[in-house]
Nucleic acid binder design. Sequence first.
DNA 1: CCGCAGGTGTGATGCACATCACAGTAAAAT
DNA 2: ATTTTACTGTGATGTGCATCACACCTGCGG
Lengths: 186, 186
Amino acid sequence: MLTTLKQHIEQLVPLTDAEFAQIASFFTEKKFKKHQFLIQEGEAAPYEFFVVKGLVKAYHTDTDGKTHILQFGQEQWWITDYQAFYSGATATLAIDCIEDTHVLCITRANRELLCANQRKMEQFYLKKSSFGYMALQRRILSLLTTNAKERYEQLLLQYPGLINRVPKTLIAAYLGLSRETLSRLS
Amino acid sequence: MLTTLKQHIEQLVPLTDAEFAQIASFFTEKKFKKHQFLIQEGEAAPYEFFVVKGLVKAYHTDTDGKTHILQFGQEQWWITDYQAFYSGATATLAIDCIEDTHVLCITRANRELLCANQRKMEQFYLKKSSFGYMALQRRILSLLTTNAKERYEQLLLQYPGLINRVPKTLIAAYLGLSRETLSRLS
DNA sequence: CCGCAGGTGTGATGCACATCACAGTAAAAT
DNA sequence: ATTTTACTGTGATGTGCATCACACCTGCGG
């Protein structure tokens, strides 16, 4: 399902078929079942993943054993433990599948080669990264300024599809609430 | 003080003097006094700023009039309302000076020209943006997982210099606490 | 020299949300 | 079909932090 990737990239930079064929050659496909890990805490994170189909979560488990979700990854999202991916260190995040998931994978070395060979991809990654940065800024402001109910409502507006795909427990872990509090909101 | 910028860029990509001279030509210098605004909420944000000397804060004021600090900008930090800068929309963040501040400014059009002319700068911005993304992820995790005291201690470790330069009230606004709570921590 | 504003500490009180505990329903596993 | 495991709701209680109120101190301008 490389066409998904092509369409995704072309939202930001136009590509010829030849260019895309070259780009595609840097990726490998993998499929994971629900509950399987893409990345485990304490292990290496050699790949950045592009989610073609399915749904994953990236999370950290704190010293009390509570999990805090940093990011969901649904169709057309990029996800990995970037800290570990870029530095080569072991992961502090875990990423596992909420649904059966189909991803495209690229290693760091291949990503660098790809950017060197295809300037358009470097431009693409810069734009993606900038948008991602702004999205995280919005989330930080949301955490700083709003209470439980408002945060939940913002999430409903921003990702209306998510709520039907992920259990409320996980929504709570993303919003920084207990599941009981979330349950009492609506 | 363009040498500061050169050194800063060279931490990520090496530059010849000629290359840097070209890069420098895209920036203009400005100086601001304490309490002056680099960007005001509701106005345009035509520049990205590189702080050569001084200290600023980027913040949002909520409906109750409380301010929430998204970012401090001290020496060698880049800062603007990126949302407004990239989109051309009016700013939802304000940025003003905590100290007299000396910045280098680049417009969006110039930044794009610069990246087009100097591939190294595109690479530089991609790296910067990636690092920034990871830093924001860490801050989100910190907001999700830690209480007031731990967040404050993390801040002390991460930016030991800040505490001597900015009033505690502002530290509290950055950490998402009331000033009274922060005052009771140590 | 005095008045005033900005920054800080500290008590009293209140509230949003966490935690603990239990129950019920749905879905998956055997 | 039966057990087990997720997921969700809801009461009772606890607590971290906000809010309100006030006092003190320091630096600055008139």
